[in-house]
Design a protein around this nucleic acid. Sequence first.
DNA 1: TAACGTAGAGAACGCACGTTCTCACGTCAA
DNA 2: TTGACGTGAGAACGTGCGTTCTCTACGTTA
Lengths: 191, 191
Amino acid sequence: MDSEVAREQALDAAERLFYGQGVQAVGMDAVRTASGVSLKRLYQLFPAKDQLVEAYLERRDLRWRGRLAEHVERHDDPLERIPAVFDWLEEWFGEADFRGCAWINSYGELGATSERVVAQVRAHKRAFREYLAGLVADAGLPTALAGQLFLLAEGAMVTAGITGSAESAAEARGAALSLLRGTPGGASAVN
Amino acid sequence: MDSEVAREQALDAAERLFYGQGVQAVGMDAVRTASGVSLKRLYQLFPAKDQLVEAYLERRDLRWRGRLAEHVERHDDPLERIPAVFDWLEEWFGEADFRGCAWINSYGELGATSERVVAQVRAHKRAFREYLAGLVADAGLPTALAGQLFLLAEGAMVTAGITGSAESAAEARGAALSLLRGTPGGASAVN
DNA sequence: TAACGTAGAGAACGCACGTTCTCACGTCAA
DNA sequence: TTGACGTGAGAACGTGCGTTCTCTACGTTA
């Protein structure tokens, strides 16, 4: 079996299991069984579980931000792109296997014990925040708004995870629109 | 040794260890050593680790909300009480042992495996949300504001935990004030 | 064909930890 | 005084899991 293929299969299984059941609840044996990649191969690709977790978070980060950007960029008007972020969150929260933000959950689980995981979580959140900052800048809005939108999005994610409901996305979107409207250069035009 | 005393000592140690290192990283032996309560006694008081975790979260919830309320109620003006929530968050985030929200972390760690923990987390978040709703109602502000403030607070907590910085509290406070100001009946008077 | 390297399956190892058991000791009632 | 009982210290047990090792089978090459 090709190494590249084995790696992808291992990460597919790891992502499904780690996200769905938590990292510590899933043994390497379960990853082996679910992926069809032998233990020997797994340990060649990822010398320790830590590094499999790291790779899972890293690949998920790329995909997650890719999906978000794809959705947002369907809107041409920079002012519409900001609420579109929360629309996408709502879609995400509604997915059948949604179980909260993978990074927030991983931080809760491993933040105190794994430096690798902490680094991944910080990098992901920084990237998301910077993406929002880009949207805010493109819309000609004040920089300070980015951090506020970021906090709303984070609050919505953590709340959706805990309650199992998608409604926090709409709440956050409402708050985001209020903040936009109350802003110099802000958007009374946005629905 | 009195049972009540043993229980408190066990919970003191459990809280310090579970919060600081994560629940799964702390064995019952460590709780025994840190608390001075024998294993036999521990298992009499809490028949399984699950239930010790549950009791830890429950007692912390009472204390956490008590401290918050105590701080908030120093302000008599209902409109000042809302930003005071975020002031208190900032104080909390600045404490030396702060390591994020215990409930969010516990959810990330055990949400997929322990019903008891999930119930505690939901109860705590519901109580916090309702506390905010009370503040909003007392200030004569629209009900919808409560959910938005809640999301800001949650976002601030999770962000402070991940970044290790207290600044998200000030950001959330700024956003909260903007939302207050943009609101009918809202408070252009609040600093 | 024969020797060799590689990969997969899964057994084995070592350790950590939740939980229970043992045993010696102190306490209190009869 | 004695005997039943509760307690503390910690050993012991069982299990799960991260990691490594063994063995077998197969494909490749001289």
